[in-house]
Amino acid sequence: MTFSLITESLPALLNATLMTILLAVISVVIALIIGFFTALARISKNKLLKGIASVYISIFRGTPLLVQIFVIYYGLPQINIEISPIPSGIIALSLNAGAYLSESFRAAILSVDKGQLEAAESLGMTYGQALRRIILPQSIRIAIPTMSNTYITLIKDTSLVSVITVTELLQMSSLIIAKTFEPLTIYLVAAAIYWVVITGFTLLLDWLEKRSSRHIMQ
């Protein structure tokens, strides 16, 4: 009985897993871009840019993601901004992860030895050239693999988007449970699927980290 329940629900659950992965991948890419530019704003000498970046980071790290999702999906329509569930979810996840990633980027940029900037500037480069050509390529290589905690959190956080009716893995599980009344089995299957996705992703990141730092290791 239980076994047939699993095999019958699996296609729908795997289908919903695709939505989970899609949400995670799109949000990670957008979050990386947001995080990168926010980090640049944080280290810039422009006080306005710096201020905006700090306020953004503070808000998105200082409030629960669930509240952020509610504000975007249920709150914004009140001022005539209506966004459908999937884009709402992506916006919330990206803005949230972007705030965390920007701190990782900033730390990575600051961790590049100051001799690198001196060497670039000694050749006669502008600060911008030194940043683009010398500092950022090194800090991106340092940062991207070390952000694995944030990526993994982001994959897990996609489950929060189920509350605004996006049919991802958790939402699909609940729908199946509503029909079958088998919460233990179905939630365990969902948990197993999350585990496989996250573990697979972690292995991929480990491999990438080894590969990207191969000739930088001293």
């Binding site: 000694s122 050749l123 006669g124 502008t126 000739h215 930088i216």
Partner: peptide
């Protein structure tokens, strides 16, 4: 910047660009 472009500086800690090969380090400027 102009002054630096005309002045070679060699550091105690070398400060080569670790993400570039020897030839790329020299080509960079």
């Amino acid at each position: 910047r102009k002054l630096r472009q005309n002045t070679g500086f060699v550091f105690q800690q070398f400060n080569l660009f670790p993400h570039k090969t020897a030839v790329e380090n020299v080509m960079e400027g």
